[in-house]
Design a protein around this nucleic acid. Structure first.
Lengths: 163, 163
DNA sequence: GGGCTGAGTTGAAGAACTAAACCCATAAAG
DNA sequence: CTTTATGGGTTTAGTTCTTCAACTCAGCCC
């Protein structure tokens, strides 16, 4: 029997992974969300090989996730920093989801090493409660369980035949 | 089989990525969420090399993301299928977040190829609206922007020296 | 000039990925 | 009872990615 299925490779998940699916990309984005800006920041925080860091940063810049901005500190030469674009900051939910999953199933015996809180950086005034990622539908139903959702073809769907 | 696992940083994101951060792992989980069960399902849907699929499935099984279950179809020999554990199904929000990010920034010109809807598989009765992932804090503030959250140390935090 | 620092490059070794051929057990066909 | 087909892998060979360490380069500081 032939069935038509959504082409699994023509899919935003696959495209997203082709940009941030490499071993270090999401960790680089995570450090950037946490304030890393310079080559050496990323290198020393992550322990990634320098050449790999260079090519990853370049990949992320050409993909539009990060931006290479010149800067100059007084009494120092002109250098480059890497900062997230809006596209890069939009990866926050993905990282929170991964963090939550890791905390739940691969936890350090001492508990999570990082907690994401509801507070803009450098603003001590707001609510500060831990943040979770939840699935919510357009009709307003929130906290959907993984079983409560399914994939359906969208306008850009390609189909493949399979037996 | 020996698995490498170079815990780069003590963080659940890094630990999560050491399980599902390899090139195909999340796509395998995605196909499983969409109903793939057998070796050949994954192979034909994804086009992944067979040996790699075999080791990925083994990795996912030993990591507790999938389970290897024997089954037998009438008039056929006993075979094995791979199904997600609860831990594996819990990756749904991560995949929805990646899908959303890909749809927003790497979209196919025709629009998304996949839409996730609020409906249990094979239940035509429920609301069917598209699903999004949102950040929500324990105090009930919902739809937090990436800028509204920050990382803070948790009970299991390790600290490293850096200059 | 000589040394130091941040920001990379280069190169060799090893690990991971790909593709294609091969293997094995069962079952169905001849 | 031999042959062929099929699902589910394993082997092998070749290519690409990662890693680590060593090297370069430009500008500041003495």
């Amino acid at each position: 029997m032939e069935t038509r299925r959504i082409d699994p490779v023509n899919c935003s998940v696959a495209r997203a992974l082709s940009v941030v699916g490499e071993r270090w990309s999401l960790l680089i984005v995570r450090e950037a969300l946490d304030g890393a800006r310079r080559f050496g920041d990323f290198h020393s925080r992550l322990g990634i090989a320098r050449n790999l860091l260079a090519t990853r940063l370049e990949t992320l810049v050409t993909a539009g996730v990060m931006r290479r901005v010149p800067y100059q500190e007084p009494g120092d030469r002109r250098r480059f920093a890497y900062e997230l674009t809006e596209q890069g900051r939009a990866l926050r939910p993905t990282l929170v989801a991964l963090l939550e999953w890791g905390d739940t199933y691969l936890a350090d015996p001492q508990g999570p090493s990082v907690i994401v809180r509801h507070r803009p950086v450098d603003d001590a005034s707001s609510c500060d409660e831990p943040v979770k990622v939840v699935l919510e539908c357009a009709a307003g139903h929130s906290h959907l369980a993984p079983e409560d959702v399914c994939r359906t073809p969208g306008p850009g769907a390609r189909f493949v035949e399979s037996s």
